[in-house]
């Protein structure tokens, strides 16, 4: 039985802060930082937005885009590293809000930045084995970087939702295959009850991101007998602009092939939403028949690679929900003081 994306939806809060406004507060050189990270600004949630509200908006956009009956959704997995409750699922709130309850299963996932793609794989298994009609996988985050920490320049807010099904006539993209690469690596973590994450310095680049992304990407291409030339587009987890650009080059993908999905320069790192947002931005402009290669990465560490083939259906439903480009347009900029208030870094006494 084939498996694929039946619909997708995204959500990005309208507020942004520029890297230069963060750098000003900490006395860092904004030009060097922006050029090094390839990030100019990042999204900031509204005071009443969190992982749940972002997940609901993205899920509603996905349902609206395909006009499908939400009671057909029989599994919901929300991946996030910023679920608002330590115990009580985000996914049940989403399920109630999109009217998929009660005949369904749900759970929350956490795997740093790749919990959303892990949810997609779980949904693939359920629909391919016919245990579920449709599955909804969401990556949503309102991530925190400690004040003055390098991560503060990129930790952003946003989410993407994918409805996974097994009926080829409903799919906008067929998932040709998936492949994962996972090890126990101490590159990034956050202990229970702690507001900000820690990172294991030397583990972040080569032993974390590059080893796992390359492992999953090469593994999938070996399995399928494909290479970079077989794909029209590629998307990689984007904690900044530099890492996905470098890994794309190592795998033989041109700048043009990653350009549509490289939204991090204007969005920041949306963690569990990051790679899924890039895939959505690519689907927003892909043509029927195009092939898209994608690899999500999560610290801790693991990577999930996917190979997609876009179908004719994409043209019929694409414009029924906002494109990523529309959500990125016309942002409202805020200064560091307002940003600190929005992120709860400062509170009224």
């Amino acid at each position: 039985m084939s498996v694929g994306i039946v619909s997708y939806g995204t959500y990005i809060p309208k507020f942004r802060i520029k890297v230069e406004d963060i750098a000003k507060v900490w006395g860092d050189n904004a030009d060097i930082l922006s050029a090094g990270l390839m990030v100019n600004e990042k999204s900031v949630p509204d005071l009443d937005e969190d992982t749940v509200t972002i997940a609901v908006e993205a899920a509603r956009a996905a349902i609206c885009r395909s006009s499908l009956d939400p009671s057909r959704i029989e599994a919901i997995y929300t991946g996030s590293e910023s679920h608002p409750y330590a115990v009580k699922p985000t996914s049940t709130i989403v399920a109630e809000a999109v009217e998929a309850t009660p005949e369904m299963t749900a759970a929350d996932l956490e795997f740093a930045c790749k919990a959303g793609s892990a949810g997609m794989q779980a949904c693939m298994g359920l629909v391919q084995s016919d245990m579920a009609d449709l599955g909804l996988a969401i990556g949503s985050d309102v991530s925190q970087g400690a004040p003055g920490d390098a991560l503060e320049y990129t930790a952003a807010a946003g989410g993407a939702a994918y409805i996974i099904g097994n009926k080829e006539e409903e799919m906008v993209a067929i998932i040709e295959d998936t492949y994962s690469f996972t090890t126990d690596t101490p590159d990034f973590w956050r202990r229970e009850g702690m507001p900000y994450p820690e990172h294991g310095g030397r583990f972040t680049g080569e032993p974390g991101y590059f080893k796992h992304v390359l492992g999953a990407a090469k593994g999938l291409m070996n399995k399928l007998g494909t290479s970079a030339e077989d794909y029209d587009y590629a998307v990689f987890h984007q904690p900044n602009g530099k890492f996905p650009s470098r890994v794309a080059k190592m795998l033989g993908f041109s700048k043009e092939k990653i350009a549509p999905g490289l939204v991090v320069t204007r969005l920041g790192n949306t963690y569990s939403g990051s790679c899924l947002m890039g895939i959505a931005a690519t689907l927003d402009q892909a043509q029927p028949g195009d092939r898209i290669f994608a690899t999500a990465f999560g610290s801790g560490a693991g990577a999930d690679a996917f190979s997609f083939r876009v179908t004719d259906k994409i043209d019929k439903i694409r414009d029924k929900a906002p494109r990523v480009e529309e959500l990125l347009a016309n942002p409202v900029y805020m200064d560091y003081a307002m940003y600190a208030k929005h992120k709860g870094k400062i509170r009224r006494a």
């Binding site: 509204d46 009443d48 749940v52 509200t53 609901v56 608002p84 709130i93």
Partner: peptide, 17 residues
């Protein structure tokens, strides 16, 4: 309409959406 947080019952209580 938009889906938002309506409030919360203190630091330990429920979040209301």
């Amino acid at each position: 309409p938009v889906f938002r947080k309506l409030g919360e019952s203190g630091d330990k209580g429920m979040l209301h959406y």
